[in-house]
């Protein structure tokens, strides 16, 4: 039930979130911006067009975007966004969630390769390199957060933080959150790892892979990526500020949970866009240094959580 609410809510909110991010950025850069509903209008436009596909492309160009979208939707089902009520038999297990996310990552990378151009291959290669290097940070930082809860289930982690807020501002948790934020930025292709608003060869990862897609293929790819961004921001915000999350089922509770999570995600989106305005993309070969730094933070967090706490 809550899972259904989460999916519908995030499908509705994810394009708005992207719209907000773009609009805030535009205003900060002194542009008028296209308004926060533009991503929705883009989706509608794309879905009305005939997809154009390369002659040599295979079924991957059709199936890949759908796979990415479905993996993002499953993320929205499993993550503790509106509430921490578990789906029976499928706990929001960290490793399962990462694996679901990786299915999307792989689908996108294969779509990038499928068209048979140098551009797609380049994006795909860089995308996978970053994904491979992010994974240790991602797992270790959530591992550090999982130690106080004694479980790798994200819902339980959020709940533990809700009931004993002192954990949130402990040094271990702060270290882990910083590491996790960097990992999420890299995973969703935001600055300083990837620049989502350019189409230049030297800067792009995501855009290079989706270049050959069009029509509904492109729509699914975009929506899938937006959903992933929204879901991960939702998770981050619930880990930082768990208040408002639904722990026992009730209708007003659901409404309150919906409102708080939307506010939290949009606020985090604004913070993200302000941050991105003042940030330059780092060189591709400096990205591993950034990730190594975040990995060190995560590793420190884990060992400290055992030895200090």
């Amino acid at each position: 039930m809550v899972a259904l609410v989460q999916v519908v809510l995030f499908v509705a909110v994810a394009p708005v979130l992207v719209g907000v991010i773009r609009q805030v950025k535009a205003r900060l850069e002194g542009r008028a911006g296209a308004g926060i509903w533009q991503p929705w209008r883009d989706l509608r436009k794309l879905l009305r067009k005939d997809p154009v596909r390369a002659q040599d492309s295979s079924w991957m160009l059709r199936a890949g975007p759908v796979a990415l979208l479905v993996s993002s939707l499953v993320l929205c089902v499993l993550l503790p966004l509106v509430g921490t009520l578990p789906v029976p038999l499928i706990p929001s297990d960290l490793f399962v969630i990462v694996a679901v996310m990786l299915v999307g990552v792989v689908a996108l990378a294969l779509v990038g390769l499928d068209a048979g151009t140098a551009f797609g291959g380049m994006g795909s290669s860089r995308h996978m390199t970053v994904a491979a290097l992010v994974e240790p940070t991602l797992l270790l930082s959530v591992y550090a957060l999982s130690v106080p809860a004694g479980s790798s289930t994200l819902a339980l982690i959020v709940q533990t933080r809700l009931f004993s807020p002192a954990i949130i501002i402990s040094p271990v948790s702060l270290l882990a959150l910083v590491a996790l934020s960097i990992a999420v930025m890299a995973e969703t292709g935001r600055l300083p790892v990837d620049n989502p608003s350019t189409h230049l060869e030297v800067t792009m990862l995501h855009e290079a892979m989706v270049l050959e897609a069009s029509g509904r293929d492109l729509a699914w790819l975009e929506l899938g990526s937006w959903l992933k961004l929204a879901a991960l921001l939702g998770l981050l915000s619930n880990l930082m500020v768990p208040w408002g999350v639904l722990t026992d089922f009730s209708l007003p509770g659901v409404a309150f949970g919906v409102v708080t999570v939307v506010v939290k995600v949009l606020l985090l989106g604004v913070v993200l866009s302000v941050g991105e305005t003042f940030l330059a993309k780092v060189r591709l070969f400096r990205v591993p240094e950034l990730l190594a730094g975040s990995f060190t933070l995560a590793f420190l967090a884990v060992t400290a959580s055992y030895l200090v706490a």
Binding site: R48, K49, R53
Partner: peptide, 14 residues
């Protein structure tokens, strides 16, 4: 509603 169209290479990487 929207049949896919085939082309040699849509954008061809430019």
């Amino acid at each position: 509603r929207h049949r896919p169209r085939r082309s040699a290479l849509p954008w061809g990487g430019g």
